[in-house]
Amino acid sequence: MNARLLLLLLLWPFAASAQGFAGLGTATEGFGTPERPAVFDFPRDHGPHDDYRIEWWYLTANLTAEDGTAYGLQWTLFRSALSTEGGEGWASPQFWMGHAAVTTPTDHYVAERLARGGIGQAGVTVGPFEAWIDDWQLVGSSFDTLNMTASGPDFAYDMDLSAQGPLIFHGENGYSVKSADGQASYYYSQPFYRIEGTLNLPDGDVQVSGNAWLDREWSSQPLSEDQTGWDWFSLSLDDGKLMGFRLRQDDGSYYTSATWITPDGETTAYPDGAFQADPVSYSDVDGRQVPTQWNVRLDTCGVDVDVYALNPQAWMATSVPYWEGPIIIEGSHRGVGYLEMTGYE
């Protein structure tokens, strides 16, 4: 999935007692539930859906500098509603969290921002499109042309994005099932952004360009209670793009899902079992064992690749920690991509 379903709620320790990773398997009375068929209304659906418990604007990018060095970049805005009872100002139940990161082959820079809804410190509007938290922003006259900034104590970036293809809808036209129990989310992506700009790093500024992938997803209970975490892959290959995820269940089994995207934006969704991802080797990351090399297969498309982390230490040491970083792909196909792994204790 990206289901990068992270977090939020987890801002607080109550995640520990909640179900599933970061409380995302907790039942959600009163909140909206994704339903078939998914019908979208743009640009309105680029904006927030306050009656759903969680939502995100999740952008990752594989970048290359003029000297050929590979970089990864993340810009994420999460929205989380604590209740369906709406309040004004500080009493708003909406919470916002921003994560930004830059990954180099040797370093990983992370920053996190938190904000209350209702006071204007963070939010998303659609006419024109603007998503922001503090000084971080993703803005543009439309969803196709955006400027993106973020800064942390030791890094910053300023990027321009322009869409080179259409929006992609996962699952059944954007209705993405996450478990055998039927938990689902609304999920669409813009994987065709051309991105370029400047990274401000401790060693100096770097001009970079590459490809960015933006995920939009919202739901209220995207995980089943027995799901403990996930491994999400976005792969940009020679002849297409592949989104696939594996949800880990506490009995050791998995629930998988994938979307194959052709260069001109045609999609094929694959149900549970078609997509296969198996750890090949683990790295010691922040005191825990995290798989940073994988074998990924989608047999019907002839995909059988090995995936390596550009920097195995791409650990997001945020309120809810997880692994998120750029990957290098070799095997039946070549390319780059992004990997997200949650729930590794």
Binding site: A111, D135, T149, S151, G152, P153, D154, F155, A156, N200
Partner: peptide
């Protein structure tokens, strides 16, 4: 608001 506390860590762009 009465006053603002300034976090000891600030971003590099400000």
């Amino acid at each position: 608001l009465s006053r603002l506390l300034v976090s000891p860590t600030q971003p590099i762009k400000q």
